[in-house]
């Protein structure tokens, strides 16, 4: 599963971090860092992260 975050849209709300902490994190400066590939077992959590992104910046490419 390939994960794309539109970093022009991302505003570092961090909601994705609560939903899928193994994939999304905020660094020490509060900026988003994320894995561009995740195991299929993470799909539900990554879908959840995409749902709760206030800027709707996360997309999942199969």
């Amino acid at each position: 599963m390939k994960i794309v975050v539109d970093m022009d849209l991302c505003a570092d709300h961090g909601q994705c971090v609560y939903a899928a902490p193994d994939v999304f994190q905020l660094d020490d400066n509060g900026k988003l860092v994320y894995k561009t590939e995740a195991d299929e077992s993470q799909r539900d959590l990554v879908e959840e992260a995409a749902d709760v992104c206030p800027m709707q910046a996360i997309s999942i490419e199969d």
Partner: peptide, 9 residues
């Protein structure tokens, strides 16, 4: 202070 807020959450 997002790290503090996240910790308190």
């Amino acid at each position: 202070l997002m790290p503090s807020l996240m910790k308190l959450r």
